[in-house]
C-alpha cells in the first residue's frame, strides 16, 4: 500500500496523545499521582494538541473534506465512523478534565476514568480500521490493534514520565515500569506481526483469477498504458535497503534508546519520547509500505 504521510502522522501523533491522556487520567483517578494545576494544564494541552494535529492531518487525505461531518453516520458497521464519534467525545471531555476548576473534585476522578476508557477505545478503533480489511492479509490480525495500543501507551508513557518531572519530582517507579512494559509489548507484538507476515500463505494469482488448476499464470498486459488509481494506491515497491534502515530506526530510536534512557537517565524523558516517536514513524510507514493488497495479484504478483 502507498504510505500516505498524513495517515502515518495521524496514527502516531494521535496515538501518543491518547496514550498520554490514558496514563495521565488513570494515574490521577487512581490517586497514584497528584497533578498540580500547572502539570494538568500542560499534560492535557500536550495530549489535545497531539490528537488534534493528528486528526487535522487525517482530514487532509479526504478528497471531499467538506463532507467529513457525514462520517458519524455508520457507527453500527464502520470502524472509521466509530473512530470519528469517539474522537469528538474524547476531545471535549479532555478539555473539561484539563482545565482546572471546570468540574468538581469528585467528578474529576470519574471523568478521568471515563476518559481513559474512551481514549483506549479510540486507539483500538483506529487500529481496527486496518485490521478489519480482509484484502490485506498482513493487517488482518489481532496483532494490529495490539501493536497500535502498545505503541500508543509506550510513547504516551514516556511523555507522562516527562510530565511527572516537570516540577522536580523524580519519576514514579510504577509509571516507569508500565512504560517499559509497553515498550516491551510493542517490541514483541511487532516481532510477531513481522513473523506472521513473512509466512507465505496469502492468496495466489490462481485464486484471484478463479483458475485454480492453472499451473502457472503470468500477466501479459494490465490493459492500461500508464499509471492508474489502482497502481498508485496498491502497488508500492520499496528498496530492501530502505526497509532495513527503517527497521533499524524502529528498533533503535523507537524502543532501545528510550528504554535505556528511561532506566539510566529518567530525567531525559522528553528526549526519550521524541526518539520513540521518530521510531514509531518509521514503523508506521513500514506498516503501510509492506502491506500487500490482493489487487496486486491482478497486476501480476503471484502471491500476496
Amino acid at each position: 500500500m502507498r504510505p500516505a504521510i498524513s495517515i502515518v502522522f495521524f496514527t502516531v501523533s494521535s496515538g501518543a496523545g491518547l496514550g498520554l491522556l490514558v496514563l495521565m487520567t488513570l494515574l490521577s483517578s487512581l490517586s497514584a499521582v497528584h497533578w498540580s494545576a500547572q502539570q494538568q494544564r500542560m499534560g492535557g494541552a500536550c495530549a489535545i494538541v497531539l490528537v488534534v494535529a493528528g486528526l487535522c492531518a487525517s482530514t487532509l487525505h479526504l478528497a471531499s473534506p467538506h463532507r467529513a461531518w457525514r462520517a458519524f453516520i455508520r457507527v453500527r458497521t464502520s470502524w472509521l465512523s466509530r473512530e470519528a464519534v469517539l474522537a469528538v467525545l474524547v476531545l471535549p471531555l479532555a478539555v473539561l478534565w484539563t482545565w482546572p476548576g471546570l468540574v468538581s473534585q469528585s467528578l474529576h476522578a470519574a471523568l478521568g476514568a471515563v476518559l481513559a476508557v474512551l481514549a483506549l477505545l479510540l486507539i483500538y478503533s483506529t487500529a481496527m480500521i486496518y485490521a478489519s480489511l480482509k484484502p490485506i492479509r498482513q493487517w488482518h490480525t489481532p496483532l494490529t490493534p495490539l501493536v497500535y495500543l502498545s505503541a500508543a501507551l509506550a510513547s504516551g508513557g514516556l511523555l507522562t514520565v516527562w510530565l511527572t518531572q516537570l516540577e522536580g519530582a523524580s519519576a514514579q517507579t510504577g509509571l516507569v515500569f508500565v512504560t517499559l512494559l509497553a515498550l516491551a509489548s510493542t517490541a514483541l507484538s511487532k516481532l510477531a506481526y513481522w513473523m506472521r507476515a513473512a509466512r507465505m500463505d496469502g492468496a495466489t494469482i490462481q485464486d484471484a483469477l478463479g483458475l485454480k488448476s492453472a499451473a502457472q499464470i503470468k500477466l501479459l498486459d494490465a490493459g492500461h498504458t500508464h499509471r492508474t488509481f489502482l497502481t498508485d494506491e496498491f502497488i508500492f515497491r520499496i528498496a530492501r535497503a530502505h526497509v532495513q534502515t527503517l527497521t533499524v530506526m524502529f528498533w533503535l530510536a523507537g524502543l532501545l534508546l528510550p528504554a535505556w534512557l528511561l532506566v539510566w537517565f529518567p530525567q531525559a524523558a522528553l528526549t526519550a519520547a521524541c526518539s520513540c516517536l521518530l521510531g514509531l514513524f518509521a514503523e508506521r510507514w513500514l506498516f503501510f509500505a509492506q502491506a500487500r493488497h490482493t489487487v496486486q495479484l491482478y497486476h501480476g504478483a503471484t502471491q500476496v
Binding site: 500500500m1 471531499s64 463532507r67 457525514r70 484484502p135 489502482l230 493488497h293 490482493t294
Partner: peptide, 13 residues
Amino acid sequence: MGCNLCTWACPYG
C-alpha cells in the same frame, strides 16, 4: 467524502 477506505476494502480493485 472521498476517504478511500472502501477502495481498500474491495479485494478486486
